[in-house]
Design a protein around this nucleic acid. Structure first.
Lengths: 353, 353
DNA sequence: GACCGTTATGGTAGCGCTAACATTTGGCGC
DNA sequence: GCGCCAAATGTTAGCGCTACCATAACGGTC
């Protein structure tokens, strides 16, 4: 048998071969101790485990991936980490994945759809065992890459934070439309009659538009007059929160100028609601006395000790964990069918409406 | 020449061999087109590029890593993504890395130091070309792994958001001590004399403790009496922001009970300041009229349209980009020495102090 | 003790790529 | 045209691991 690897140069990682030599077994047995311990006799296993510990051996995942044809890597592509919209989902996804021996490869597009293809190529180069997508839109080139990965090859894809009518593969999220409806109906039930909507309704924000559509529908159903919508065309609902706060303040100003009789505002996101509340305070408008404000997302600062914002809570972390579960199930060969999981949402009434 | 790879099964990725066959060159030439295009004659290069495009070839990074012994992966281990403390740093790091053809592998410990070793093992298994660490503390086992990776092997490490006296390798951040001093001195200059501190001073929060130390020192220097510190022992300064807000509210209540004459509060983080301001509002205490409040971090909601919080701004994204630069420089063989980069901070005066 | 069916272990080959060297090609001076 | 040097391309040999199959060891049966 060879010497087990890179002796001498001192700067290399310990290899499985070296562990094998030390334990007096073949590399194959070391591999089995790592992956199927039950198939190795306890005495042998202990010897190998001791060698692993003594040498500080850490298996090379790239080599393992090459040989086994599975990377144990799941790539998540989100528009941004800022604003903590996806942060809990990513955290849940990562934790659940790690428990199952997989790793999370994170890519953020930061709204540059030009770089989306580059990101996707880079990520596909790692041959991920699964793909998690938050964006709805893709460039044609990116779309083609995705197609190839999903159809021709067997890379499972999960779209999150929405329930597309025609999912690429699987989806975990909630109905933004239903959530928009629910909050609007809730405000109406509370007796508010002149409900405005402030949101970001730019071309990228598929989700925000769905929420707005829900708002519009309830207004029509309940005869609450035409929509009073202020929508900027900026970045998606997950835009840098700072920008959203500005928009909320500016949005409320615009709304009050155009419809001074408003008694409630439904904001497309919590940061927007925060900006609106700040602007209201600046103008001496009492919330909820003169004006009710509702948000969307139940972000970190919305709680009772802070804003006390009435909002819609999204089970962000559960979306992450469920996504991981789906991916793992699919990989294990169970769950051959595409699935769409609706995790719902929750109305949280606090003090602003 | 062989057939170039996995013909027939239809479910595999295109390999370099297949591209080579299509372009009528050897695999090596394809490899060169990808990595050193200048060393390939333009005519040949174009042929290869066309073949790549037609086949939708995406190189297998794991195989490349194995052969070249560089993974082009940088692992970042942060305590959490929540609260958006590190979000901008991670975003900047990821963007800068991607521009240089590297990828970001993200690991969050979520405060479970028990799982820290597992995380580190998983991450080291990918043979990262660099390691970015946000935490100060490590378990003994994790520390040993780190040692081995850093010393024996040549994995560069960058510690961020602080300037350790004895860095493991490199560091990019700012002096939390100096920042604590600066804000306290700033409040003193403004005429506040009875300045309290609310923060999380648990065992993990090295950074928060440094800020507090700066506060204490300025108080002593300027004869402002003994520190009026309320410190909970909870999670680190980057804990879930929701929890921090609660702490800020509870903290202010505790401070006012013990030292009713306070005229200013320096909060160890912006979420804490937010909670404190909310609590002040609840009690009818005018900010900054009756009580000045300062935060730390300049988080997304601190701006003028929102809280208008006086705070300390940390160049989060620049920390990320600078970290990437250091890692890449080191990898390129330049920059053989350990470096500590102080990116400083900035006092932002808004309306709460 | 020869037989068998397990169960435990080892040998061989190769995953897709690239470093290092070998070879070919092309351009140019004389 | 020949020789020569550089540039362009090809060949060989693994990187560290795991799938697959072969062999060896074991424990019981008659």
């Amino acid at each position: 048998m060879a010497d087990g690897g890179n002796n001498g140069d001192g700067a290399g990682w310990v290899t499985m071969g070296e562990v094998a030599v030390r334990a007096g077994v073949s590399p194959m047995t070391v591999s089995r101790v790592l992956k199927e311990p039950d198939r190795v006799r306890p005495a042998t296993r202990e010897r190998v485990e001791r060698a692993i510990a003594e040498l500080g051996y850490v298996p090379d995942a790239a080599a393992g991936a090459l040989a086994s044809r599975q990377s144990r890597l799941v790539a998540a592509l989100v528009s941004t980490l800022a604003g903590s919209i996806f942060a809990s989902t990513i955290a849940g996804l990562g934790a659940a994945l790690r428990e199952a021996g997989h790793e999370l490869l994170l890519g953020t597009t930061e709204y540059s759809s030009a770089s989306e293809e580059a990101l996707l190529r880079a990520v596909l180069g790692r041959r991920p065992d699964g793909l998690v997508l938050s964006a709805g839109q893709h460039t044609p080139a990116a779309r083609r890459l995705l197609e190839r990965a999903t159809r021709g090859l067997a890379v499972p894809v999960v779209e999150i934070w929405q329930l597309p009518e025609r999912p690429v593969d699987m989806a975990v999220g909630f109905s933004n439309f239903a959530a928009g409806r629910a909050m609007t109906a809730f405000l109406a039930d509370l007796g508010y009659r002149r409900i405005a909507f402030i949101g970001v309704l730019g071309p990228d924000d598929f989700r925000g538009k769905r929420r707005h559509a829900g708002y519009v529908e309830v207004l029509a159903e309940q005869g609450l007059g035409p929509p009073r919508t202020f929508g900027s065309g900026g970045f998606g609902g997950s835009a840098g929160a700072g920008a959203s706060v500005e928009e909320g303040a500016a949005g409320l100003a615009a709304v009050l100028e155009r419809w001074p009789d408003c008694d409630a505002v439904f904001c497309g996101s919590d940061p927007i609601a925060f900006g609106a509340i700040t602007e209201a305070a600046r103008r001496g408008i009492a919330v909820p006395g003169d004006l009710a404000v509702a948000g969307f997302g139940d972000f970190d600062y919305a709680g009772d000790a802070g804003l006390a914002l009435t909002t819609v809570r999204i089970p962000g972390e559960r979306i992450g964990r469920e996504t991981a579960r789906l991916l793992l199930e699919r990989k294990a060969g169970r769950l051959p069918e595409p699935v769409v999981v609706d995790l719902g949402f929750e109305l949280v009434r606090r003090r602003t409406a």
